[in-house]
Simulated scan of single mutants.
Amino acid sequence: MEAARAVNMAEPGVIEHSANLSARDFGRLSRFIYDTCGIKMPDVKKTMLEARLQKRLRSLGMHSFTDYCDFLFSPEGMEKELVQMLDMVTTNKTDFFREPDHFNYLTQTVLPEWVKRHPGATLSIWSAGCSSGEEPYTLCMVLSEFALRNPGFDFRILATDISTRVLDKAKTAIYTESQVEPVAVELKKKYLLRSKDRSSGMVRIVPELREKVRFRRLNFMDEDFGMREQLDIIFCRNVIIYFDRPTQERLLQRFHRHMKPGAFIFMGHSETLSGLNVPLVSVYPTVYRRAR
């Protein structure tokens, strides 16, 4: 397919100078990013966007952002470049056992009640915006420990992100020793495998936990999330802060449709549902519940 505009290609791998992102092209890109994945790109983020997309220009051998935009918005670009561009502009910050109060509340309050109400059932959790996998694997450790104390308890986790780059990393389940530093020593012994090359400083999540998580790409702006079952718990932490309030409200209404009556949603500590028209009730700081 032809691009909407001829692309000025440089010699392979060679760019004579760094391209500058004009106000016009920034406007085109920021509107597109908002329409595609709901992320606001105010003027203050122009420099950040320019720096991140320079890598794509170099990779494609392009001289200007105008060429890049014209290619991106062409049928060929929509097919070949869209996911690459979104990978570059989305922020993926996460840690093992991030915001640990949530995991305490999960194991001490949410799960004991759930087990009483659903004997023999399998708990379904969605880690929405899972990034490189630290959150779903943390959940695996926490839920596995709970299962040891509660025979018959079982769980499954769906983990999604818009970025294929971080999903690929999550699927490998390989991390540096510094990344797993927040994991307690006794959990490291149970759930992490050291590399045979001890000098590499790399560890991997054990197969038993990896088998509990199903990873797939999902864009929150899609009308249909492709889920046919309702969920018991959603972890969507430090994600909606990148959206404006109308988009947050629409997204949480969609989440609500996928929650069972009485299900919980865990938000980030910097996020609030105050002022949003969503049928969720606060039960703990940044933890909400769908009414029964």
Rank of each mutant, 00 (worst) to 15 (best):
I174W: 02
Y137C: 01
F146T: 06
W114I: 10
V203F: 06
E145T: 08
V206P: 00
L209Y: 02
W126D: 00
P207G: 13
P136M: 11
K212H: 02
R216I: 01
R156P: 05
T107Y: 01
K196V: 04
D161P: 07
H102E: 10
S132Q: 03
V183W: 01
S178C: 03
S131E: 07
H102A: 08
R214P: 05
L143K: 01
I162K: 08
W114V: 04
P100R: 10
N150I: 08
G152K: 10
V180T: 11
G120E: 11
H102L: 06
E211A: 14
V115N: 01
R156Q: 15
A128T: 13
T172F: 03
D101R: 15
T176P: 06
K171M: 08
Y137F: 12
I157Y: 03
L143V: 04
A121Q: 14
S144C: 09
T122E: 13
H118M: 06
S195M: 09
E177H: 07
E186L: 04
T122G: 06
Q108V: 09
V110A: 06
R210W: 00
V185N: 10
D154V: 00
K116M: 13
V110S: 02
T176N: 07
R165N: 15
Q179R: 14
L143R: 02
T109N: 14
S199M: 14
Y137L: 03
N150D: 13
I125E: 07
G120C: 08
A128S: 15
L218E: 04
L148Q: 13
Y191K: 03
F146Q: 04
L193D: 08
P136S: 09
A173G: 14
P119K: 09
F103N: 07
H102C: 09
L123E: 04
Y137P: 01
R194A: 13
L187K: 02
A184T: 09
I157C: 03
S132R: 04
R194G: 13
L111I: 10
C140F: 00
K116D: 12
V185G: 04
A121H: 14
E113F: 12
S163F: 09
K196P: 12
L148P: 01
K212G: 00
H118A: 06
S163H: 04
V206N: 00
R156W: 08
D101K: 15
L139F: 09
L158G: 04
L143E: 02
S127K: 08
K188H: 04
R217H: 05
R194V: 05
V142M: 03
F153G: 04
V180R: 00
G120M: 09
N219F: 09
N104F: 15
A159M: 02
R210I: 00
K212Y: 00
A128N: 10
R156C: 10
F103S: 03
E208Y: 01
D101T: 14
H118P: 10
F220E: 10
L106N: 02
T138R: 05
L143S: 05
P112R: 12
A121C: 12
E208D: 14
D154N: 13
L167S: 11
I174P: 01
V185T: 13
V180F: 02
E134R: 06
S178D: 14
L192S: 00
S124I: 05
S199T: 15
L209I: 03
M221Q: 12
R216P: 01
Q108W: 06
